[in-house]
Design a binder for these strands. Structure first.
Length: 929
RNA sequence: AGGCGCGUAGCUCAGCGGUUAGAGCACUUGCUUGACAUGCAAGGGGUCGGUGGUUCGAUUCCACUCGCGCCUACCA
């Protein structure tokens, strides 16, 4: 074996072998265990958040597979309607083309080409991460089968009246020319202005003042509203104002929506271009006037679908972009003496999450899902525990949204996606069906009737919502569906609880009658080392593969600063990157990355990714590698005791007991999705117990001549047996290094099997607790630590063997000293160990206390007297402070009366111990003079 | 406005109604000890955001408060 661990030399080889041998497919007849991958965008790449979640899903899958479950981790990707269409449109744009130049079919063919070309990126990344997904079941939301499921669901919901078509105000993206659902709108506060306009009363008796942030919508006003309680305006309610610039008469109405304290207390009402006004308009039966086109330019306008009278909209405004129109309207109002004042005003501006364009509330025909009837059972499923959120407080977030849920706008004016299965005849009547043929036959429409399919496609999340069952073959009744649905757990981020999780629950319950998953494990979000979200535009992204393989600085800078939406940020991104990674990123390997993710997966919402952590876990891999190297060197070609024989030595008994407890903790924590605590239990056992103590404790047995052949053979057995189990225990988190090492270890141990993946996960019961061995070894450790402390603080070189005396040793301690002399000698590097006779005067020594026993290191020539005095004085101060605390506690009658007797007893013991310590330290100090 | 989260060592984070609050990294000192310098050994470093309450006992539970962040809904 190499002296250091080199991940690159093993990872890809092992993955290829696993995949070739089909080890990822569900096997055996155990209980099914299934995780559906949250499908990433097929044309995208996996970022750190994906890598994080994939690590956890893979760990769960491998863990359950090893425990004998029939485990399926189902892979796939989604078609990401808007995002993907935008990418291809940008490519066309670069060639000076528009999608309309190609036509719908040719454009879609182009998108498929792009998918074929870029779709391999994700699966390559997943292979590098070690994801044990069943590739034979890979799915894509636009696959024929999944598309059929989409059609089936659409038709069924429509037949039930849960999908309807309606003319509504929608969030219209004037750049992408599509409607967006509420969830795709990002509203950030932006600095704007509040214009105060005078609207003259129709009878010429004066004016009232309205305040608005959107002057251009004045053209579509159909009322002015005041609060019904507002004394200032009560007399105006029911009268009319003459709308400036158009001359139209509109009523003054009273509506509680108006806040009298804001602005002037009068609000212009534009039902055609504002969601709140739309509701006001419905309450007061106001007409809807539309004054913008699909590009959000001013048009001549229409009222409830009919054209406005000619000249209603000033001709000079028609055709202007809405922001240009805003300036013009303000100018016209000012010229007319109708601008009262302008205030600076910050307001939330809704933008599309993809295009970043300012959205326009716009009246269009769209398809909606009536959500309330679907939401009720989905709420119940979480309330009654059929679905459990982990951590459980996320259920609150879920409930809050579900109780306020709005109908879901599912149509998108795009070409890339599932086309809506609806057809229109010449009269505009709509027919919904699985196909045009079905529509014709069902509605008796002969071939003489021309039908035209709806141009729109469905929101991508509509197909994602079916993912847990569409991937298993629904609407067919497949064996996979029967076996793996409901799935075991969904692993995802809180950012898509509404987008995806809630919708899967609704659709799953509706169409299968069962929940789609029993648990939802909500992970934190990976952020950079400053807690910032990682994003291309911030230039702080990390490619998981760059952490695995390493990357040089120039490549990293190029990756981060190319293709930016805001190229002006480039210099600062480059500077920050050069500062943070002056030497690029070294190679850490997949296992180190995965272990880091696991160790970071605590319950928090934000997870800062810190390169120092991954470096530490790369070192851990190397530690494991070298521990194995030691074990193999110690075992190979040497007699090995038969498995199952009682271990011969104290360290053997101890390490088995410790392993059992570590395993118990791992099982317990994994059941709670506390990957961080499971990782920690394994890390601490491996490094602090197995390597730091046990391996060292085997050296006196194996390397000296203190032990007989049978003892050595037994120690070799424990050495390799514990390592073999440990590698299995680590495998779900670090699949590659454990596979590589396990094969060598299993061969040396005579364990059958050719992949650790297929081995049983170690159970705590195989390594029962041994309290006696733990107590005994704790004594050994205490002894060694005492000597090391003296050595460390007195700067005695480790190479110098020390003569040691024991004073006041009780019978048990004498026995232990004799029994474990050969361990103590090597670990503490002792020259000799002698028991002082009672009454024998010890030489001047440095002291360590071990229970009631004093460990003395004679000082002649070794130790600085003053330094030892200082050391003892410090220990004495600490002990006295401790005594003070314990005494105070025991002196408190309330404590003695109320605290549990066991606690009181423990405090009493502690007092005795600390008093003895003080006495002994005092004596030692006195002896030093 | 409503909901949620966070605040513990220089940094990143665990933890918990009961010994002296832990880990990794960083820091100091010593070490080519036969698996490992990606290492070994020893050490320094925290009034657990603040105030009050419950309790024999609070970093832990409760209330209030300060600071930071997120989500949902938003007043034109």
């Amino acid at each position: 074996m190499e002296k250091t661990y080199h991940p690159a030399s093993i990872e890809q080889r092992l993955y290829a072998e696993w995949e070739r041998r089909g080890l990822f497919a569900p096997a055996g007849d155990g209980a099914p265990y299934c995780i559906m991958i949250p499908p990433p965008n097929v044309t995208g790449t996996l970022h750190m958040g994906h890598a994080f979640q994939h690590t956890l899903m893979d760990a769960l899958t491998r863990y359950h597979r090893m425990r004998g479950h029939r485990a399926l981790w189902q892979p796939g990707t989604d078609h990401a309607g808007i995002a993907t269409q935008m990418v291809v449109e940008r490519q066309l744009d670069a060639a000076g083309q528009h999608r309309s130049d190609l036509g719908r079919e040719a454009f879609i063919a182009r998108v498929w080409d792009w998918k074929e070309q870029s779709g391999g990126t994700i699966s390559r990344q997943m292979r590098r991460l070690g994801d044990s997904v069943d590739w034979s079941r890979e799915r894509f939301t636009m696959d024929a089968g999944l598309s059929a499921a989409v059609t089936e669901v659409f038709v069924a919901l429509h037949e039930e009246g849960l999908i309807y078509r309606g003319k509504r105000l929608v969030n219209w993206d004037p750049v992408l020319h599509t409607a967006l659902s509420d969830l795709e709108v990002v509203a950030e506060p932006e600095q704007g202005q509040l214009w105060h306009f005078r609207y003259p009363l129709a009878d010429g008796s004066g004016h009232l003042v309205v305040a608005t942030t959107r002057p251009e919508t004045l053209l579509g006003d159909t009322a002015v509203a005041v609060n019904p309680e507002d004394e200032r305006y009560r007399h105006l309610v029911g009268r009319q104002v003459r709308l400036p610039l158009t001359g139209r008469l509109v009523p003054v109405i009273a509506d509680a929506y108006v806040d009298p304290a804001f602005g002037s207390g009068c609000v212009k009402i534009t039902p055609g271009h504002d969601f709140n006004d739309y509701e006001v308009g419905r309450r007061h039966d106001l007409p809807l006037i539309n004054v913008m086109d699909r590009d959000a330019r001013i048009t001549a306008g229409d009222c409830d679908g009919k054209a406005l009278p000619a000249g209603e909209i000033p001709a000079m405004l028609v055709g202007l972009d809405r922001f240009e129109a805003r300036h013009q309207v303000v100018a016209l109002m000012q010229d007319a003496g109708l601008l009262e004042k302008v205030d600076a005003h910050s307001l939330p501006v809704p933008r599309g999450d993809r295009s970043n364009a300012v959205l326009e509330p716009w009246l269009t025909d769209q398809w909606y899902v009536k959500i309330a009837p679907l939401a009720a059972p989905a709420i119940a499923a979480v309330e009654d525990g059929r679905i459990r959120f982990v951590p459980d407080n996320w259920a609150k977030t879920y409930f809050q949204w579900m109780h306020n849920i709005q109908d879901w706008c599912i149509s998108r004016q795009l070409w890339w996606g599932h086309r809506i299965p609806a057809w229109y005849d010449a009269a505009g009547r709509v027919y919904v069906g699985r196909s045009e043929a079905e529509v014709r036959s069902r509605h008796g429409l002969g071939s003489n009737v021309s039908l035209r399919q709806d141009e729109d496609v469905l929101d991508t999340w509509f197909s994602s919502a079916l993912w847990p069952f569409s991937t298993l073959g629904w609407p067919q009744k497949t064996p996979e569906l029967a076996a793996f649905y409901p799935t075991s757990v969904l692993v995802t981020g809180f950012d898509i609880i509404f987008f995806w999780v809630a919708r899967m629950i609704m659709m799953g319950l509706k169409f299968t009658g069962e929940v789609p998953f029993r648990e939802v494990y909500i992970t934190g979000l990976i952020r950079d080392e400053h807690g910032e979200k990682m994003s291309k535009s911030k230039g702080n992204i990390l490619d998981p593969l760059d952490l695995i393989d390493g990357v040089d600085l120039e490549t990293l800078v190029a990756k981060r600063s190319s293709g930016l939406m805001q190229p002006q940020l480039r210099p600062q991104i480059e500077k920050a990157t050069r500062r943070q990674f002056p030497a690029g990123i070294p190679e850490f390997g997949t296992d180190a990355l995965r272990f880091t993710f696991a160790a970071l997966a605590s319950t928090g919402r934000d997870i800062r990714f810190d390169l120092n952590r991954i470096e530490g876990y790369r070192n851990f891999c190397n530690k494991l590698w070298n521990a194995t190297r030691y074990v193999l060197m110690s075992v190979e070609g040497q007699p090995l005791a038969a498995p199952g024989r009682a271990p011969a030595t104290l360290p053997d008994r101890w390490i088995r007991s410790r392993l059992g407890q570590a395993l118990a903790s791992v099982h317990e924590q994994l059941a709670l999705y506390r990957f961080d605590l499971a990782a920690r239990a394994l890390y601490e056992f491996t490094w602090n117990e197995y390597c730091d103590w046990y391996l060292e404790l085997t050296k006196p047995v194996l390397q000296g001549d203190a032990a007989d052949a049978a003892t050595r053979a037994a120690t070799r057995r424990t050495l390799i047996e514990v390592l073999e189990a440990l590698l299995r225990a680590l495998h779900p988190l670090m699949p590659f290094i454990t596979e590589e090492l396990w094969r060598k270890v299993a061969a040396a141990a005579g364990v059958g099997g050719d992949s650790v993946m297929l081995q049983p996960y170690p159970e705590a019961a195989g390594f029962p607790a041994d309290a006696a061995a733990e107590a005994e070894l704790a004594w050994v450790q205490g002894f060694v630590l005492g000597i090391r402390q003296i050595r460390g603080e007195m700067n005695i070189p480790p190479s110098k063997p020390l003569p040691v005396l024991l004073q006041d040793a009780a019978a048990a301690d004498r026995q232990r000293a004799a029994d474990h002399w050969y361990l103590l000698r090597q670990l503490a590097r002792l020259d000799s160990l002698r028991l002082l006779d009672s009454g024998e005067e010890p030489p001047v020594s440095a002291t360590a206390l071990l229970g009631g026993t004093r460990i003395l290191v004679p000082m002649a020539g070794l130790i600085d007297l003053a330094a030892e005095r200082e050391r003892l004085a410090k220990a004495l101060t600490r002990a006295e402070a401790d005594r003070g605390r314990v005494e105070a506690k025991l002196a408190n009658r309330q404590f003695a009366e109320h605290a549990p007797p066991a606690v009181v007893a423990r405090e009493r013991e502690r007092l005795q111990a600390v008093e003895q310590e003080i006495r002994q330290l005092g004596e030692q100090l006195a002896r030093l003079g």
